[in-house]
Design a protein around this nucleic acid. Structure first.
Lengths: 229, 229
DNA sequence: CGAACAATTGAAAAGATTCAAGAGTTGTGG
DNA sequence: CCACAACTCTTGAATCTTTTCAATTGTTCG
């Protein structure tokens, strides 16, 4: 791991990686690295935007709320991902919350410094634009799935996506501890329905559950459910 | 209307407006303006990305397909809006189609020139990044609505959004001729369901229909349906 | 141990889709 | 100007999916 003086892992921190060397000292001065424990909030929907977060380790869910009860998980983020960028734009408020699913180490960049960097560092700005463009594509792909797929297809699709993003061990276990409730919120359904669908998938030996982790055992079966048409 | 030599309306063309004056001649040389008739395609999902479109007049729907029958309208665009930017990113293919709802005049910028402009024009790049960020927020807002709102709420929300975006005349008619089928595709439901919901809203005098245009007559009632919680 | 919370299951209800069929519109060619 | 075909519009009824409610079991943790 290449780390800079403040302990920032250059291989995973997009911000530090993209900054030209001369800027490093300024970044050192502005960024803050700290940890958030499991269940802790990085920021909350409706809060004024303070800055951007880069994750060094751990994982978080990014979610939008609906009344007191309901939520929709928009995205999961892990080591190397950016969080809080959804606050950049017209409004001054975060449109989503970010909650740690396990202890996370974050690199926090205050908004003013982040924006100043964007203004000065063309490469970084370009990378950020591409990043937003990709996020937009993903978001709309997910939107179509939510609208046109039955729950089973959405769960299958979600598991394939998570397996790819978080990786799997030898047994196929996805490297993310995910509660049924969170899976339900991610696939836009209720806890009970998510549970029932999971049971079916286990029955069909498409997936397996051991302890708290979920394993994809038959990718092809899941692909059938998450297929177009 | 301030127009440049090629007939580009500077007040509505984000691209031309953001370009520094010295760049205008180069733009003139690269961009193409032409019209697409009603029902015509600007580009199709899966096509290789050729460039970006800026709309001078008319309106288009941006939609994703699902098998042969189903589609989800992701967004409507009008005068001044950008279309085709969803193709920018990892893949080389448009993730959506764009179809003219009425005759449109477009300013087409080939991708290479668009990207070259981004590389050179910092202001433009910054504006594009903010634009993507805003689109992302809108997309996720819509996603939450699709997941958590009943159809009636989604239709109500859609109509309020369209009224705001496209404007209304004295009678409240939204300045966009929208078929029930398109409204259904936009709200992620079927033609019949959209029809029934519209009938209810007419009954409740929240909206009115005269000819092909839809009028919002009682904003407050629609807001109740599209409300959070 | 007991309290709180997560998991599990069944049954009823709600919401939306699908199918089907008839009414109304539009456009075309004779 | 009418007849016909091809649409879109409109409505009812059956069906399916998903949610909701409710009740029971299992697990965790102070």
């Amino acid at each position: 791991m290449k780390k800079d003086k403040s302990g920032c892992d250059l291989s995973t921190c997009m911000f530090c990686r993209l900054c030209v060397p001369e800027w490093r000292p300024a970044i050192q001065a502005h960024k803050q690295t700290y940890t958030v424990k499991k269940g802790g909030l990085l920021f909350k929907e409706g809060d004024p935007v303070q800055g951007i977060f880069f994750l060094f380790s751990g994982s978080v869910k990014v979610h939008k709320h609906w009344g007191e009860e309901k939520e929709l998980i928009v995205r999961f983020a892990r080591r190397g991902d950016i969080v809080g960028h959804r606050g950049v734009g017209s409004t001054q408020l975060y449109p989503v919350s970010a909650t740690a699913l396990e202890p996370v180490e974050v690199c926090f960049i205050p908004l003013e410094f982040f924006q100043a960097s964007l203004k000065v560092n063309h490469e970084f700005l370009y990378a950020m634009m591409l990043f937003y463009a990709t996020e937009l594509q993903d978001s709309e792909q997910k939107m179509r799935n939510l609208v046109n797929m039955p729950v089973k297809g959405r769960v299958a699709y979600a598991l394939l996506l998570l397996a790819e993003k978080f990786g799997q061990d030898a047994e196929g276990n996805i490297d993310l501890i995910l509660s049924r409730q969170d899976l339900a919120s991610y696939t836009g359904t209720t806890y009970e329905t998510a549970f029932r669908v999971m049971s079916e998938l286990i029955q069909e030996q498409a997936i397996a559950v051991s302890g708290k982790s979920i394993a994809v055992t038959d990718t092809a079966k899941l692909q059938v459910y998450s297929q177009l048409q």
